[in-house]
Simulated assay, not measured.
Amino acid sequence: MKDVLITGASGGIGRAITMNYLQKGDRVFAHYNTNAVSIQEMEAEYSYADLVPVQSNLAKKDGVAVLTDKVEEVDTLILNAGNSYFGLLTDMSGDEIDAMIQLHLTSSIKLAKHYISSMVQKKQGSIIVVSSVFGLSGASCEVVYSSVKGGLNAFVKGLARELGPSGVRVNAVAPGYISTEMNARISGEDEQTLVDEIPMGRAGQPEEVAALISFLDSTEASYISGQIISIDGAWQ
């Protein structure tokens, strides 16, 4: 049994990841900020499982300390917390930019810094970042989102090299268009136009992202580290 911390566990992809680990019998520390209902629904569905809700606002500077005070060490860290902003860079406020950088990038780096100490001591552990294809290609009207995801990709590459000698693996998955609440703003003709650009002709499902993460955290992937693996139906 593993101890797994999943940030952003209340969202579409986060829920799928959480349920995957619960079904395997692992203890899951399910982080959320405001969507307690989503966590409560999983608690009810998996009443037999070891699910530990942990609330913290990682868009604030004290968010990491609040979280690490509640969860001391883990075997697997999945950095999935995030949100998007669709609009021109010139329309974003300074506070919105700061909050996105804090949530996606700064908090992720600080959480990894905290949890790798015990992983290095045990000579094993896994860190998996949920990035985005936009962190690889960039996206108009999602400039800051693309920037922080690109920063996370570079973070994965660097940290994997740093931790390789200690037996700790670091990888990222880069989803494309996934059918989640965060993407619910895209609908109707706009969604069809987007789907038409995807060679596989459909949106991805959260469960497919969760399955890829499960593989990366398994012994079958023991020689995979420092990789950014796209899961986008050949879109980008």
Score class of each variant (00 low, 15 high):
E72P: 01
E73F: 09
E73P: 06
V74P: 08
V74T: 12
D75A: 13
T76P: 13
T76V: 15
L77K: 04
L77V: 12
I78D: 11
I78R: 13
I78W: 13
I78E: 12
I78G: 08
I78L: 14
L79N: 11
L79E: 14
A81R: 10
A81W: 10
G82K: 07
N83P: 04
N83K: 12
S84W: 03
S84E: 04
Y85A: 02
Y85P: 02
Y85V: 06
F86I: 08
G87P: 03
G87M: 00
L88Q: 09
L88C: 07
L88H: 10
L89P: 05
L89Y: 15
D91W: 00
M92T: 01
M92A: 00
S93I: 03
G94W: 07
G94A: 09
G94R: 12
D95E: 15
D95Y: 12
D95T: 15
E96R: 15
I97D: 08
D98Y: 02
D98F: 01
A99D: 12
A99G: 01
M100P: 00
M100Y: 06
I101W: 04
I101C: 02
I101E: 04
I101A: 03
I101G: 03
L103C: 10
L103R: 04
H104S: 07
H104K: 12
L105N: 08
L105K: 06
L105S: 05
S108T: 12
I109S: 06
K110C: 00
K110P: 00
K110V: 01
A112P: 04
A112R: 02
A112K: 02
K113W: 05
K113G: 04
K113H: 07
K113E: 08
H114Q: 07
Y115K: 00
Y115E: 00
S117M: 02
S117Q: 10
S117Y: 04
S118N: 05
M119G: 10
V120T: 04
K122F: 00
K122A: 05
K122P: 00
K123I: 08
K123N: 14
Q124S: 13
Q124A: 06
G125K: 13
G125W: 07
S126E: 14
I127Q: 11
I127N: 03
I128V: 13
V129E: 03
V130N: 07
S131Q: 11
S131K: 08
S132E: 14
S132M: 11
S132I: 14
S132Q: 09
V133H: 06
V133C: 13
F134P: 05
F134I: 11
F134R: 08
F134D: 13
F134G: 06
G135V: 11
G135W: 10
G135I: 02
L136H: 07
L136V: 12
S137E: 13
S137Y: 14
